[in-house]
Simulated scan of single mutants.
Amino acid sequence: MPDKARNDPHASMTRGERIRAAARTLRTPRTASWVANETEVSVKTAQKYLNQLVEDNVLRKIEQGDQTLYCVDQLMATYREVAALQREHSREELTNALDSLRSKITGWKQSYEVETPGELRASIADLDDADEVETRREVASEWEHLSDRIPVVRAALNEYDWATKRDSISA
């Protein structure tokens, strides 16, 4: 077996699996040609699987000029994430997680005397200590991430009873 195939984790994946894996990581809209190149398949094959993912509400198809672009359907991804949180965690666990997220952000606001991650990033301009600059960058990044998580956890809590009633299997 050639060294490349032995070291490539995608070597054992089918064309469809490679395309699905690549598609789920699309953070910016990409063409079928780009996906085909990344996954080493023909454009026609990439289009076939990408269109299946659009039908399955995993990807969105965007027409931009004469190009068709594909990207992750963030709304559906969020719905799936909310459902996963509801299935994998109790109401109490989700409540504790929400409290923890808010507490961390409140602590950073107090520690750095800022109200937003942007203000924290801007405060870097006044620093000479490289370690403190790096710490503030990391905190700002984490703060942005946690700020994005709060509405998802809140949504899971808001609809917890409704979702668990509908998710139960009646015998």
Rank of each mutant, 00 (worst) to 15 (best):
S12P: 06
R121A: 05
T14C: 14
T28Y: 03
L50A: 02
A83S: 03
A46F: 03
A23I: 03
G16M: 03
L98G: 11
Y70Q: 03
A22M: 10
A83P: 00
L53A: 01
C71W: 01
Y160Q: 03
D3Y: 11
V35T: 01
R15I: 03
A84R: 01
R149I: 11
I105W: 01
E92S: 12
L75G: 07
S141T: 13
Q47E: 12
I169M: 12
R149W: 11
A156H: 02
R166G: 15
E81C: 05
E115D: 07
E113F: 03
R6I: 15
R18T: 12
G16A: 01
R102M: 04
Q110Y: 09
Y49M: 06
P2C: 08
R137L: 08
Q74E: 14
V133T: 08
L101M: 09
K165R: 04
D131M: 10
Q64F: 13
A156M: 02
D131H: 04
A46D: 05
R166E: 05
N96Y: 11
T135W: 00
E144K: 10
L69V: 07
R154T: 15
I62M: 13
L157F: 15
N158G: 09
A171L: 11
S12W: 00
S111Q: 13
A122P: 11
K61R: 15
R136S: 07
I105G: 09
S12V: 13
I150T: 06
T45G: 07
I124Q: 12
S12G: 11
D99C: 08
L50N: 04
Y49N: 09
D161Q: 13
A122F: 13
K109W: 05
L120H: 00
P151A: 10
K48A: 09
A130Y: 07
A23V: 05
V139N: 04
K109S: 11
